[in-house]
Simulated scan of single mutants.
Amino acid sequence: MSDYLFDTAKVFSIPVRGETASYPVGRIFCVGRNYAAHAAEMGGEVDREAPWYFTKAAQHGVLSGASVPYPPGTSNFHYEMELAFAIGAPVFRANAEEAERAIYAYGCALDMTRRDRQQDGKDNRRPWDLGKDVEGSAVFAPMTRAADFGTVADQRIHLEVDGEPRQDARLSEMVWSCVEVVKHLSHYYHLRPGDVILTGTPAGVGPVEAGQTITGGIDGLDPIKLEISSPE
């Protein structure tokens, strides 16, 4: 007999190159406005004093190649191409060396967003949950171990919709590096294996419609693909 009143959600996990087991996701943290050009196109500025964050539920994760329905409650569903990384060791109040050692793997990700609902939150000084924490909105390609990927530097990051280029930038444009993010975030949370962090998107975000296909990539990592199907 189960100890629970109903079946629990299945653990969402991400494949890792060279590993027979996948990486189970516990928490998803997302860095806001980590590219100056994207902040400007959204009518804001980057905060150069410290990074800031929002979260997505792990149960909202899907893998590259999935088809997700156009979500309810929006008429302005946006793509955001991002570098994600996974934590591989417990870390709390980390220095730079500890933060770097805690990064286990890197991968391509999409942060899909109800932009109109996010704007509602901004306009009314309310949380962004309806805009960001959307079912099927955290999309992950298979990850590559940090030791195999090497240093995050000037790698190209790009996205296309139905083959048409929409985003094209360099990881060197990030305001806050992955190490800086771990160092900062670990002063607010006990970071641990299962934590995945999305590092923000470059300029060029925009809407997609049902029937369209999103593709994207980062030099040295597995590419990502998502199909948008009809609303339920």
Rank of each mutant, 00 (worst) to 15 (best):
S2L: 01
D3Q: 11
Y4M: 13
A9L: 09
K10C: 08
F12N: 13
F12I: 13
G18K: 09
E19G: 02
T20S: 14
I28N: 10
G32T: 07
R33A: 15
A37P: 08
G44Q: 13
E49F: 13
P51F: 09
W52H: 15
F54N: 03
A57M: 13
V62A: 12
V62M: 09
P69W: 12
P72G: 12
N76K: 11
Y79D: 05
M81R: 08
E82P: 15
A86K: 05
I87G: 08
G88T: 04
E98P: 03
E100A: 15
R101Y: 01
A102R: 10
Y104N: 11
A109L: 06
L110I: 14
T113V: 07
R114S: 00
R114G: 00
Q118Y: 04
G121T: 06
K122F: 08
D123N: 06
D123M: 04
P127Q: 01
W128A: 00
E135I: 12
E135P: 11
A138H: 02
A138W: 04
A141E: 05
A141H: 02
R145H: 09
A153R: 12
H158E: 08
G163Y: 15
L171E: 10
L171P: 15
V175K: 02
W176L: 02
C178N: 05
V179K: 13
E180T: 00
V182E: 06
L185D: 01
R192M: 14
P193H: 11
D195W: 03
P202I: 11
V205R: 04
A210S: 11
T215N: 05
T215P: 01
I218N: 06
I218A: 04
E227W: 03
P231L: 12
